[in-house]
Simulated scan of single mutants.
Amino acid sequence: MYVPKYNREEDWASIANFIKENGFGMLISTRDGIPEATHIPMELVEKEPGKFVIHGHISRANLQWQAFGSEQEFLAVFTAPHAYISASWYGEDKIPTWNYIAVHVYGQTRLLNKEESELLLDNLVNRYEGGLEHGVKLADIEAAELSSNIKAIAAFELAVDRVQARFKLSQNRHDRDYESVIDHLKAKGDENSLQIAAEMEKRRKSARS
């Protein structure tokens, strides 16, 4: 990913928080020289102090799993809020653009065993079912059905070996244009625009403090 210096995010706490809040991403690899990608929920896990991994799972019917445990480097992509930035919001410049946040995580994978796979699923279900009124727990699933489903998936662990993070948030604009972009995004009012505006506000305040 091309990441200009002024868009580059190097604060691991910010990057980790973004991954945790936007865990539905793309797992990308190659097979026979052809890129392939799977859209799946993934979890950032601190395996030991300062050492992070990505956990996820795919169907065994998806042949991408056959590369788990190989020497191939995988890429996990996380992205969420994005917003079109109209040039009419600037004082003089007339070139429009797009603001967004994207994180790329590179690393090798290993295939998880049955016990690790069940723990992965338990953590995933607890996270997304936990806030629901009648949330389901893994323990609610019949043992035979759960075992059958675990056999049908390939769970993996991706080592966080290398990270690229681009937080493209008009950092190259002067204050007047920057504030104008925020105001117009707020006026649009959709979820993506509001999220980008909030992130821009937080960052400019942090830079001034």
Rank of each mutant, 00 (worst) to 15 (best):
H174A: 08
Q66C: 00
Q195F: 05
L119D: 11
E10F: 06
R127H: 08
K205G: 10
M200Y: 08
N17F: 11
I28F: 03
S180Y: 07
F167W: 09
A16T: 13
V163T: 14
Q164E: 13
E118K: 04
I15N: 10
D122Y: 11
A80C: 14
L169C: 04
G91P: 05
Y90T: 12
G189R: 03
N62Y: 00
L146Q: 12
T109M: 02
N113D: 15
N192Q: 10
A144R: 14
D140A: 09
W89M: 08
I101N: 06
E46P: 06
R8F: 10
I54H: 07
L138N: 10
T30R: 02
V3M: 05
E73S: 03
R8H: 12
G189V: 07
G107A: 07
E9Y: 14
L194T: 11
W12F: 15
G33V: 08
S209Y: 09
E115A: 12
K186V: 10
V105I: 14
M200K: 06
E21P: 01
V160R: 06
M42N: 08
G131W: 01
G130W: 12
A144P: 05
S170M: 13
S88E: 15
E199R: 15
N99E: 02
N149A: 13
V3G: 05
I196N: 11
G50A: 11
Q72C: 00
A61L: 13
L169Q: 05
A139C: 13
S148P: 02
S170R: 09
S170Q: 12
H55D: 08
A197I: 02
Y84F: 15
P41Q: 05
I58G: 07
L75Y: 00
Y84T: 13
I101P: 01
A13Y: 08
L111S: 05
H184S: 07
R166T: 12
P49C: 08
T30Y: 00
M1N: 13
R176L: 06
I150Y: 01
P96T: 13
F52Q: 06
R208H: 09
W89I: 13
D140E: 09
F167Y: 09
A83N: 12
P96H: 14
S170D: 14
R31C: 05
Y2Q: 15
L158V: 03
N172C: 01
N7H: 09
E129R: 06
Q66R: 01
R208T: 01
V163A: 11
P41S: 01
A102T: 14
N113E: 08
H57Q: 11
Q72T: 00
A67E: 02
T38P: 02
H174G: 09
N22I: 09
